[in-house]
Computed example of a mutant assay.
Amino acid sequence: MFDQQKKQSLAAWRKLATQPQMRLDPEEQYDELLKAADEMEEQGLITSAEWRQLVRDAGSVFRGEADQTLR
């Protein structure tokens, strides 16, 4: 159950990071990515190291440098 919830949460995060968001400007998308990462860490779904990686990845998305590993 835990692993499935983690996989679903990370998949939703990646979808938000990689798909064009018509309703969100880049700053809003970045904020949403950070909120999602925070929620996953607070729920114990990800470690602090995984959280830091998501924050770095969100920064790359914001700068338009999304790493191909997100896709």
Rank of each mutant, 00 (worst) to 15 (best):
M1A: 06
M1D: 09
F2D: 13
D3I: 10
Q4S: 13
Q5W: 11
Q5L: 14
K6D: 12
K6V: 10
K7P: 02
K7T: 04
Q8L: 07
Q8T: 09
S9W: 14
L10Y: 02
L10M: 07
A12Q: 15
A12M: 09
W13Y: 05
R14I: 09
R14F: 12
L16R: 04
A17W: 07
T18D: 03
Q19W: 07
Q19T: 10
P20E: 15
L24V: 05
L24A: 07
L24R: 09
L24N: 04
L24C: 04
D25C: 10
E27F: 09
E28Q: 15
E28T: 08
Q29G: 02
Q29N: 03
Y30N: 11
Y30Q: 14
Y30S: 04
D31Y: 08
E32I: 00
L33P: 03
L33M: 03
L34A: 04
L34P: 08
K35F: 15
K35P: 09
K35Y: 13
K35M: 12
A36F: 04
A36I: 07
A36Q: 14
A37C: 00
A37L: 01
D38N: 15
D38E: 13
E39C: 12
E39D: 15
M40Y: 01
M40G: 10
M40K: 01
E41H: 15
E41G: 08
E41A: 11
E42Y: 05
E42C: 03
E42I: 08
E42H: 06
G44K: 06
L45P: 02
L45Y: 07
I46T: 05
I46W: 01
T47F: 00
S48E: 13
S48G: 11
W51K: 15
W51C: 07
W51R: 15
R52N: 10
Q53Y: 10
Q53I: 05
Q53M: 05
L54I: 03
V55F: 01
V55W: 02
V55T: 10
R56E: 07
R56C: 06
D57A: 03
D57L: 10
A58Q: 04
A58P: 01
G59V: 09
S60Y: 11
V61Y: 00
V61K: 01
V61W: 06
R63W: 05
E65P: 03
E65D: 03
A66S: 08
A66I: 06
D67P: 11
D67V: 00
Q68S: 13
R71P: 10
R71W: 06
R71I: 09
